[in-house]
Simulated scan of single mutants.
Amino acid sequence: MSGSLVLVDLVLAAVLLLSGAAKLGDRRTTEDMFVSLRVPLVPRAVGARLLPWGELLLGLLLLVAPPVLLVVTAALVLALFLAYLALIARATRFDPPVTCACFGKLGGHRVGATTVVRNALLVALAGVALAGALDGHWLPGGVTDLDRGGVAWLFTALATAALAWLIGRSDTPPGAADEELDYLRLEIPYGVLRDAAGVTQSLRELAATRARILFFLSPGCGACERTAQRLDEWSAAFAGRVAVHAVYTAPLEALPDPPHDPALSFHEPEQNVTRTFGMLTTPSAVVLGTDGLLAGGPVIGESAVADMVGELLEELAGTASEPSPESAQESSAPVS
Score class of each variant (00 low, 15 high):
Phe238Asp: 07
Thr115Trp: 04
Gly168Asp: 11
Gly198Val: 14
Leu125Pro: 06
Ala86Cys: 12
Phe155Ser: 15
Leu293Asp: 04
Ala48His: 04
Leu158His: 11
Gly108Pro: 02
Gln329Cys: 03
Ser170Glu: 12
His267Ser: 14
Asn272Met: 10
Pro334Ala: 02
Ala75His: 01
His267Phe: 08
Ala126Asp: 10
Gly150Trp: 11
Arg27Ser: 12
Asp171Asn: 11
Pro256Asp: 10
Ala208Ile: 11
Val123Cys: 12
Arg38Met: 02
Pro97Asn: 11
Asp26Val: 02
Ala74Thr: 06
Ala176Arg: 14
Ala45Pro: 01
Gly289Gln: 09
Val35Ser: 14
Pro52Ala: 02
Val123Asn: 04
Ala236Leu: 08
Val128Cys: 02
Thr144Val: 12
Asp147Tyr: 08
Gly112Val: 04
Ala177Trp: 07
Val64Glu: 00
Val111Ile: 02
Ala21Pro: 00
Leu61Pro: 01
Gly108Tyr: 00
Leu37Phe: 00
Pro173Cys: 02
Tyr190Pro: 09
Arg27Lys: 13
Gly3Leu: 01
Ala113Pro: 07
Ala162Gln: 09
Asp95Ala: 13
Leu63Ala: 10
Pro269Met: 12
Thr29Arg: 13
Pro334Cys: 03
Leu56Glu: 06
Ile88Phe: 01
Arg27Asn: 08
His260Tyr: 15
Trp53Phe: 15
Ala320Val: 09
Val116Glu: 05
Gly318Glu: 13
Leu163His: 04
Ala246Phe: 10
Thr160Ile: 09
Leu51Gly: 07
Leu206His: 05
Val77Ala: 07
Ala237Phe: 08
Cys224Gly: 11
Tyr190Ser: 15
Thr92Pro: 04
Leu85Asn: 08
Ala237Gly: 06
Leu7Asn: 09
Thr290Ser: 15
Pro325Ala: 07
Leu181Pro: 01
Ala237Tyr: 09
Thr30Val: 07
Pro43Ile: 04
Gly141Met: 08
Leu252Cys: 09
Arg185Phe: 02
Ile188Asp: 04
Leu125Trp: 09
Leu312Pro: 02
Val46His: 01
Val143Lys: 00
Pro189Met: 04
Glu326Met: 03
Leu69Trp: 13
Pro174Ile: 10
Ala304Ser: 14
Thr115His: 02
Val68Cys: 02
Tyr190Val: 13
Val242Tyr: 01
Ala14Arg: 12
Thr209Tyr: 06
Leu41Ile: 14
Ala113Asp: 06
Asp291His: 09
Leu184Asn: 07
Glu270Arg: 15
Val72Leu: 14
Leu122Glu: 06
Phe277Ile: 09
Ala83Trp: 13
Ser284Lys: 05
Val128Gly: 06
Ala83Asp: 06
Leu154Arg: 03
Phe103Asn: 01
Ala120Ile: 01
Leu252Glu: 07
